[in-house]
Computed example of a mutant assay.
Amino acid sequence: MSNLSALSYYLGIEVRQGTEALTLDQSMYASKLLERNDMAKCKPCVTPMEERLKLTKASTMVKVDATLYRSIVDGLRYLVHTRPDIALAVGYISCFMEDPREDHRAMVKWLLCYVKGTMDQGIVFPKIGGSRL
């Protein structure tokens, strides 16, 4: 077995090992997700979803492309691995994957705008006291 050096990137997750902490984030994956969905130049949002948002499966709005909707939601579901702040919103929009409507897609766009504004966030495992990481 050979020494392959410190882990820095694995399955879309960037790993930064510092003296004070270990950081996991997916900023490159998030930017690719935004580019793929023509949202790279969107205006960032400060919250992952609207306050008191009520979406329903019985929506009467126009249907949207279900394949595209599922693709975006699946990309966001993978992003949740290092972004627990979007877990609730992603779980909520996942409920409408069977028959997505325009109001559901608007919520997905809102969430992508939030991701745009918070791409530098991730999970940090700090070094505590004299212990090893």
Results as ranks from 00 to 15, higher is better:
Val46Ser: 11
Glu51Ile: 14
Leu68Tyr: 06
Thr47Phe: 09
Tyr92Pro: 00
Thr23Ile: 11
Ala66Trp: 09
Glu102Phe: 06
Arg105Thr: 01
Gly18Arg: 07
Leu11His: 02
Tyr78Val: 01
Ile13Met: 09
Ser27Cys: 10
Trp110Ala: 00
Ile86Trp: 03
Lys127Tyr: 02
Glu14Asp: 08
Leu24Val: 01
Ala30Glu: 02
Thr19Lys: 15
Met61Leu: 10
Pro126Gly: 03
Met61Lys: 15
Arg16Val: 06
Pro84Met: 13
Lys32Asn: 13
Ala87Thr: 14
Tyr10Cys: 02
Glu35Trp: 05
Arg52Gln: 15
Pro48Asp: 09
Leu76Gly: 01
Trp110Arg: 10
Leu68His: 07
Lys109Asn: 13
Arg105Gln: 14
Gly12Asp: 04
Tyr9Gly: 03
Tyr78Phe: 12
Val73Gln: 02
Tyr114His: 02
Val124Tyr: 02
Met97Ala: 08
Leu112Phe: 07
Ala40His: 09
Arg16Ser: 12
Thr118Cys: 00
Ala89Ser: 10
Leu111Pro: 00
Leu88Lys: 12
Trp110Gln: 06
Leu22Arg: 10
Gly12Asn: 05
Thr19Val: 05
Met107Ala: 14
Ala58His: 13
Ser27Asn: 09
Pro126Ala: 02
Ala106His: 06
Cys113Val: 01
Glu14Thr: 13
Ala89Asn: 01
Asp74Glu: 13
Gly91Tyr: 11
Asp85Val: 05
Gly91His: 11
Lys116Leu: 00
Arg83His: 15
Asp85Met: 08
Ala21His: 10
Gly91Thr: 07
Glu14Ala: 05
Arg52Gly: 08
Arg36Ala: 15
Trp110Asn: 01
Tyr69Phe: 13
Thr67Glu: 14
Lys32Tyr: 05
Ser8Trp: 06
Val64Thr: 11
Asp120Tyr: 05
Gly122Glu: 13
Tyr69Pro: 03
Lys63Met: 07
Tyr10Gln: 03
Leu53Ala: 03
Ala30Arg: 06
Ser31Glu: 15
Ile13Gln: 10
Phe96Ala: 03
Leu79Ala: 09
Gln121Pro: 00
Met28Tyr: 09
Ile123His: 06
Val62Cys: 04
Asp103Gln: 12
Ile128Phe: 08
Lys32Phe: 04
Thr67Gly: 07
Gln121Tyr: 13
